[in-house]
């Protein structure tokens, strides 16, 4: 087994230099801005994510070592396995990321990455601290190891996947060449993913290859007539990294504690963010449906909007 380095460790100096370059560039452009406390929060979340990985990474490694005993094939370190592993890892990333937006248990962790109202390279480093607690590595990380791909190879290509995603967190780049936009995830596609405009909600989950979104019906192109508004549906009123890291977990625990039945409690954990038994908050599906109805009504005034009883509904949840 080759002794592979952690690519992210080697990429960190590059991340720092590129963030600094984008800050300098922002002072000369009208397209990007950095707010110091927002930048500080994003970078502290990134540092905390690294510390969390050092402290709890052994849990995932132990699980993968356990699963590897039951691998179906012994693929080993053959050259083509790298290609298979990279593509398959990105495919799994798509579904993992989609689940992170559609299941509150996973969203409680992933919301951290979306919690900035800015979209710049520092946002790429705004990462959660609680990855291991979601047990995502079990639900989504198991499959390649179970297939027989070496753990080191899986870890290496996963790191490459994350490194690729760094550069797409920017408004400094408009659009890439058409062929590239068709196949690869790009700043334009990922801006849509980070936007809270109803049209853009829950779209473009891809990591490296945007083709997964095109295949599974979650692709949305960025429109020049609808600039992205970044953040979460209910933006955070704090820059405190601890509050950023744990706010959705606490909200979810509170909802479960107040649940009136076991089914409701399970719903608060496993249903989409914003779900409540009485629909008193809004999920992204509800927001999109309301937006679609309103858009249709504006284009055809005789179409009912489906927005008959707004008075009975309080505001949306934290996210």
């Amino acid at each position: 087994m080759p002794d592979l380095p952690d690519p992210i460790v080697y990429a960190i100096p590059g991340f720092v230099l590129l963030v600094a370059a984008e800050i300098f560039w922002s002072s000369r452009s009208q397209r990007v801005s950095f707010e110091p406390r927002d930048t500080a929060t994003s970078l502290m979340m990134g540092l905390g994510n690294t510390v969390s990985g050092i402290l709890f990474g052994f849990v995932g490694l132990a699980w993968f070592a356990f699963v590897a005993q039951f691998a179906v094939f012994d693929i080993g370190w053959v050259w083509w396995a790298w290609i298979v592993c990279f593509i398959a890892d990105d495919f799994i990333y798509y579904w993992s990321h989609r689940a992170a937006h559609r299941v509150r248990w996973f969203w409680a962790e992933h919301v951290v990455h979306h919690s900035s109202q800015h979209y710049n390279l520092s946002t790429a480093l705004r990462q959660p601290w609680t990855y291991v607690f979601t047990l995502k590595f079990i639900w989504f990380g198991t499959w390649l190891v179970l297939l027989g791909i070496p753990i080191g190879m899986v870890a290496f290509v996963s790191a490459l996947n994350l490194i690729y995603q760094f550069w797409i967190h920017t408004e400094a780049i408009g659009r890439m060449p058409r062929w590239f936009e068709a196949v690869m995830n790009t700043p334009s596609h990922h801006r849509v993913h980070h936007a809270t405009n109803p049209r853009y909600l829950d779209r473009n989950y891809a990591g490296v290859f945007i083709v997964w979104d095109r295949m599974f019906g979650t692709f949305e192109a960025e429109r020049d007539d609808e600039p992205c508004r970044y953040g979460v549906v209910r933006n955070l009123g704090t820059f405190n990294p601890v509050r950023v890291a744990f706010h959705e977990w606490l909200a979810m625990i509170g909802d479960v504690a107040r649940a009136r039945s076991f089914g409701d409690a399970v719903g608060f954990v496993l249903r989409p963010p914003g779900w409540t038994p009485d629909a008193s908050r809004e999920t992204t599906d509800m927001i999109k449906a309301r937006w679609s109805a309103q858009s249709a009504a504006q284009s055809d005034p005789q179409t009912p909007t489906g927005d008959d009883n707004p008075a009975s509904a309080p505001a949306a949840p934290a996210e």
Binding site: A20, I23, Q30, F34, P36
Partner: peptide, 14 residues
């Protein structure tokens, strides 16, 4: 982090 936050404060166009 301190360096980048400082740069943001000075050059961040905020």
């Amino acid at each position: 982090i301190a360096m980048l936050v400082g740069l943001s404060a000075i050059f961040g166009r905020w």
